[in-house]
């Protein structure tokens, strides 16, 4: 058993009076797909952001591979470079074409020569099925296409783990499928993934483990079969019942 790609130990984070994370511990093994579910405002996104220190935890420790993210004087840019992140609202660089968006990390962070970066970026765009949109600007793309470019942008850094923060929540229902399809491909290629989502179909089909979080703590975790069909906690059962009612399961194709 190799060391986990992400290790989180007793993480606490508060915003003012609101304690968002109340001691969360979690490990993600290499090649594992872990899905985090739970009601909004329960600290799922904050937890994700603590992994690459976009949010700074008040206490607790985080490792990515063998490097401690929360150690003092750590070169956080170096760690972020190997942690891919995909946001709910895409955050593509609006002034750059799809191709330049994907080249951004390799060229500006890794100082890769432009020609090499261009080839790599085209490769990543092909991987998400958008090679023909290389010269389009974000404003010319649909939401689903934007999110696929954002995934390609993260992949171009050759990340050790991909963090997905509600990647389909801002999308029209008919565009969700294309993004989930790309994510499923990634899972099949054994990319290590930590995914916050309400897509229960995706969770059921792709994840190795589901974590149910509420009010800043992990209520229950386990393989999808256990959480969906034999939850140990009453709260888990209630939440899954409600979410299935709200979102349905139609996204699983």
């Amino acid at each position: 058993m190799s060391a986990p790609v992400v290790r989180i130990e007793d993480l606490h984070k508060r915003y003012g009076d609101n304690e968002v994370l109340k001691g969360v511990s979690l490990e993600v093994a290499k090649g594992e797909v872990v899905v985090i579910i739970g009601p909004s405002g329960t600290g799922k996104s904050t937890l994700l952001r603590c992994v690459n220190l976009l949010s700074r935890p008040d206490s607790g420790r985080v490792w990515v591979e063998d490097e401690e993210v929360t150690a003092p004087h750590v070169d956080i840019n170096k760690i972020r470079a190997k942690v891919g992140m995909v946001f709910q609202d895409f955050n593509l660089f609006a002034h750059l074409t799809a191709l330049k968006n994907v080249m951004a990390g390799p060229v500006w962070v890794k100082k890769m020569p432009k020609e090499e970066a261009r080839e790599l970026a085209m490769e990543e765009l092909r991987r998400v099925g958008l090679a023909d949109k290389a010269d389009a600007y974000p404003g010319q793309l649909s939401g689903g296409q934007k999110q696929r470019v954002a995934i390609a942008r993260a992949l171009a850094m050759n990340p050790k783990v991909m963090l997905f923060d509600e990647p389909t929540s801002a999308l029209d229902p008919e565009l969700i499928g294309e993004v989930l399809a790309v994510m499923k491909d990634l899972a099949r290629e054994h990319m290590t993934m930590l995914v916050v989502t309400h897509e229960m179909g995706f969770a059921k089909e792709v994840s190795n483990r589901i974590i149910f979080m509420e009010k800043g703590v992990i209520v229950e975790e386990g393989p999808p079969e256990q959480l969906f069909y034999a939850p140990q906690q009453e709260r888990t059962r209630q939440f899954l019942g409600k979410i299935t009612e709200l979102y349905g399961q139609s996204e699983t194709e």
């Binding site: 840019n77 946001f87 500006w108």
Partner: peptide, 13 residues
Amino acid sequence: SGQMMAARALGMS
């Protein structure tokens, strides 16, 4: 702020 966040998440200073 989303643009800044995405840039920092890639590892930019």
